[in-house]
Design a protein around this nucleic acid. Structure first.
Lengths: 145, 145
DNA sequence: GTTCCTGCAAAATTTTTGCATCAGT
DNA sequence: ACTGATGCAAAAATTTTGCAGGAAC
């Protein structure tokens, strides 16, 4: 089974364990995010669902996203343009960060063990428990640089 | 002369070189940011200026901040609460990052050469030119952890 | 049957824009 | 004088909330 589905399953497990019921809007948002590894805005989610003929109220989308973030199933990502984006969080802790190309606007995802190590060491040095972190790079991507 | 003033001077130089005129709102915002090393929201800036008896229209504050960001004099920082924050950028490239404590909400600034190195190496590995970057940690600060 | 979920509409927030006026060069 | 800067008010964009009806357990 592809990883996307394992994330969906994980979501269903976590929410069921929390005593929550299922519902159409949530199923639709989760199904959409499962197939999109990278950050989407609430409005993009709404439009994509509409395109699929699966109309969903925007308020429900925000409520679903809020719920998923609270349960650590989705991460809120801000790229500096004033809109929040959302992307799934892998149960195994795998995650990536983002580069925004200032020329073409493209969003590039990457991961880097060296960076993760530097952040771990930093947390120790500061004496704080770092529960999550975001790294955002701005610059020129390969094609534009 | 303290570093805050050297930043103010730098701002005035850059903007004068760009052929821009001075104005009250800009002077007030720059003077305020010069004395605050860490991120403030537009509304906090407005309130602080009002407290000082230096009333400034909110639209002007946003326009000043936009201008300063465009010229690389101020950095826009997003902490995940839906409000943009702004802080001065040192001409010498010195900068810091942020930890948001999820217990007490406190904002802690830090810098870390190891992290900067990791990001430099990462840019090389990806073959992109990284012009700026933000790192945001979320977790428990020393007092709450 | 109870509790949660959904969708609509309305509200609240944050940020941007239009426009007349003022001020800096 | 010319051009940029300011402030007000209005608008736009994003996100949240209230509430009534519907669905899941």
């Amino acid at each position: 089974m592809p990883e996307a589905n394992s994330w969906s399953d994980h979501v269903q497990n976590v929410l069921a364990r929390a005593g929550l019921k299922r519902g159409g809007a949530r199923e639709r948002v989760v199904a959409l995010l499962a197939g999109k590894p990278c950050a989407l805005t609430a409005v993009e989610i709404e439009q994509e669902l509409r395109r699929q003929g699966r109309l969903t109220g925007r308020a429900s989308i925000y409520r679903v996203l809020e719920l998923l973030v609270e349960h650590g199933l989705v991460e809120r990502v801000e790229l500096g343009d004033g809109q929040a984006r959302f992307e799934r969080v892998h149960p195994d802790g795998a995650h990536h960060h983002h580069l925004v190309c200032e020329r073409c606007g493209r969003l590039i995802a990457f991961d880097d063990p060296g960076l993760e190590r530097a952040i771990d060491r930093l947390g120790e040095r500061l004496g704080v428990r770092v529960e999550s972190h975001d790294v955002l790079l701005r610059g020129a991507c390969k094609k534009c640089g």
